[in-house]
Simulated assay, not measured.
Amino acid sequence: MTSTITEKPKRLLSLDVFRGATIAMMILVNDPGDWGHIYAPLEHSKWNGCTPTDLVFPFFLFMVGVSVIYAMESKKSTVSHSKLILKALRRTVILLLIPWVTQLIFHPDGGLAHLRLPGVLPRIALVYFISTVLYLKTSQKTRDWIFAGALIGYFIIMTCIPVPGVGYANLEPETNMGAWIDRLVFSPDHLWRESHTWDPEGLLGTIPAVATALFGIRVGSWLKRKDRDDQVKTNWMFAYGVIAVVAGLFWDLFFPINKALWTSSFVLYTGGLATIGLALSYWLIDIQGYKRFTYPFVVFGVNAITAYVLSGFIPHYMGMIKIGGHSIYQTFFAPYFSPVNASLVSAIFTVLILWIVMWGFYLKKIFIKI
């Protein structure tokens, strides 16, 4: 892991803002004061369906795709592809190791025998690497075919191929094809701690997750075009996003929108919403020049992975602080608010603490690149 003291020029401000808002939301929903009292929009869907919280992860992977374009377009024709792929591989390995080492620190009793191998950062790592290779080695037309093939192929695998030991294809948590593959490859001891029979970031779901990043690459390529003016780009992004949302809702009728399975309908629906959101940000910030409100989000956006990693450490150690024998939550929030509001205010407080830390990084011009 290295750090630099200067930003690369010509960053897309709207992308940093959109990414920063996504990271802030991710921290908010991951760190409530009380997991037993959470407002419904700040919880994941029980299974099928999509809440605002379910949009956070696909939005981030979408922006991974957009970022690949802005990071590599100028290098694609001037730097050895092997060198770029090796650099991407190094980043991938680091992203894989971070959550595994973190688990060993926070859960030393479980050791390697119960280390969860899938997860959010491992999925980001695999999607980043695969999408980088596809960007470097394929044309946009080929990537469009891969995108369509991934969504249709995943649909066929999940709904048509019988699951060994079950006898029929299904979309239930513990008996779908993805869950079977995860138990086969990782074993139950290395899956999600809440279940050990399936994992919401499972291996098979990486296929449609890569499609989410390819969605972002397609939008990023459109944003980088020099033969279209900004207004035309924005109009097409809105249109593209609306079409994808409608297509996702239609596919939902027979392949339900589901984050845990990362269904093909989920890819289209969330990718469409992400495109609309980025188009709105691009229009407001980069075209219309409304930049006063951007600063708080940019602080998170330029150090997104660092903020996410620290969101696993800082709340953990904050929870260990005792004031008169009580936690920060029990001392400052629970006595003064209703249970759900106390939980929400505590989560906002955590976001603020992390923002202050990242603000320090920003002021020092420390931008950590993995």
Rank of each mutant, 00 (worst) to 15 (best):
residue 149 G to V: 06
residue 363 L to D: 10
residue 207 I to H: 03
residue 77 S to K: 15
residue 83 K to Q: 15
residue 54 D to V: 09
residue 32 P to I: 03
residue 206 T to R: 07
residue 51 T to W: 04
residue 177 M to Y: 11
residue 63 M to R: 05
residue 286 D to V: 09
residue 125 A to N: 01
residue 276 I to A: 12
residue 201 E to P: 09
residue 96 L to P: 07
residue 205 G to K: 13
residue 233 K to S: 10
residue 11 R to C: 03
residue 97 L to P: 04
residue 142 T to S: 02
residue 134 L to N: 06
residue 21 A to D: 08
residue 63 M to A: 07
residue 253 L to Q: 15
residue 220 G to D: 10
residue 362 Y to A: 03
residue 21 A to W: 07
residue 110 G to I: 07
residue 196 H to D: 11
residue 24 A to Y: 05
residue 316 H to V: 03
residue 310 L to A: 04
residue 166 V to Q: 05
residue 132 T to P: 01
residue 242 V to C: 11
residue 129 F to T: 01
residue 361 F to C: 03
residue 111 G to H: 07
residue 6 T to D: 14
residue 268 L to N: 09
residue 225 R to M: 04
residue 81 H to G: 12
residue 308 Y to H: 04
residue 153 G to C: 01
residue 213 A to T: 10
residue 344 L to Y: 11
residue 36 G to D: 02
residue 83 K to L: 11
residue 237 M to A: 10
residue 338 S to N: 09
residue 136 L to W: 01
residue 24 A to Q: 06
residue 281 S to G: 14
residue 305 I to G: 01
residue 216 G to M: 10
residue 140 Q to A: 06
residue 197 T to W: 14
residue 282 Y to T: 12
residue 97 L to K: 04
residue 100 W to M: 08
residue 6 T to C: 13
residue 261 L to N: 11
residue 138 T to N: 01
residue 233 K to A: 11
residue 2 T to I: 11
residue 270 T to V: 13
residue 242 V to W: 10
residue 107 H to R: 14
residue 248 G to C: 12
residue 105 I to R: 05
residue 312 G to C: 03
residue 193 R to Y: 15
residue 335 P to V: 00
residue 316 H to D: 07
residue 25 M to Q: 08
residue 180 W to D: 06
residue 175 T to E: 12
residue 274 A to R: 12
residue 195 S to K: 14
residue 359 W to R: 05
